[in-house]
Design a protein around this nucleic acid. Structure first.
Lengths: 136, 136
DNA sequence: GCTTGACCCTGTAGTTGCTACAGGCTGCAT
DNA sequence: ATGCAGCCTGTAGCAACTACAGGGTCAAGC
């Protein structure tokens, strides 16, 4: 199949597919006489693997390691587990950060009752140095 | 004060301060005879505003709008409220996404019992097209 | 047989928000 | 005088794409 078909089949931008090839995440496919890329089922499933991993937020480097393991079924699976576990921890940390951020934003927005920017609590709160809840 | 002092006073990298000036987020300060940047209290509070906003995850463009409002106290504050509210929505959406992601990662990792990569549930799950809980 | 339009190719530059040099000047202490 | 911290400009790098510019290829329709 040509790159456009692979693109539709996997929901991946054409430019992104070529990018993945350029950085060595996908192997260079065969070419037609017209120098068009020609992909098979293996490329397709490899790209699906990459897309799914990206959707889960793994970095390109992490995916490289995961693909490497996937290419060597005789290796120990512990590394995959470590990568995934570390990633899960990062996701949990990010959620915690964003939750704190949500609290602060809610607090700031709750104080805005319209009017002029000069009296705006949102702008005022941003100017403060981290003291957003009024002390009493 | 010189750029190093401003840097320490606001917890901002020197390179970042110059970057903010370059993109027009901070006004160019006066210069000493030796062509050193010379900042006053206004620069300091403006930079604090920027840092605090960045910590809350606002983009540079959003901060540009917020600063603009802050510079014109006679304008309507509704725009600040809209920016902050939209941002809060984005944060909430991101939290929701990450929570879903956490669930999927936990599920994937829970299935790994060690062994060889060929049997690894983590790698297998990544290869699937979104069907990670086995149907039976 | 010729044109139109969809598709493909390479290579490079842009995006966001910084960060990290290289290569050179200034200011102060020893 | 010499060393070192601190400052200057300008450019390049990071992640992970995305968006062209400028060209080649192929099938269909007139």
């Amino acid at each position: 199949m040509k790159i456009g078909e692979l693109s539709r089949a996997t929901g991946t931008n054409i430019e992104t597919i070529r990018y993945y090839e350029r950085i060595g995440l996908l192997p260079p496919p065969a070419r037609t006489d017209a120098n068009y890329r020609s992909y098979g089922g293996e490329h397709r499933s490899r790209l699906s693997f990459v897309r799914h991993s990206r959707d889960l937020g793994f970095t390109i480097e992490e995916i490289r390691s995961l693909l490497d393991l996937s290419d060597h079924p005789d290796r120990d699976c512990g590394e995959a587990d470590r990568i995934a576990t570390r990633h899960l921890e990062q996701v949990e940390e990010k959620i915690a950060q964003l939750s704190a951020l949500r609290e602060e934003l809610s607090r700031i927005i709750g104080r805005c009752r319209g009017g002029l920017a000069g009296d705006c609590r949102v702008i005022e709160a941003l100017g403060d140095h981290g003291q957003c809840a009024s002390p009493h």
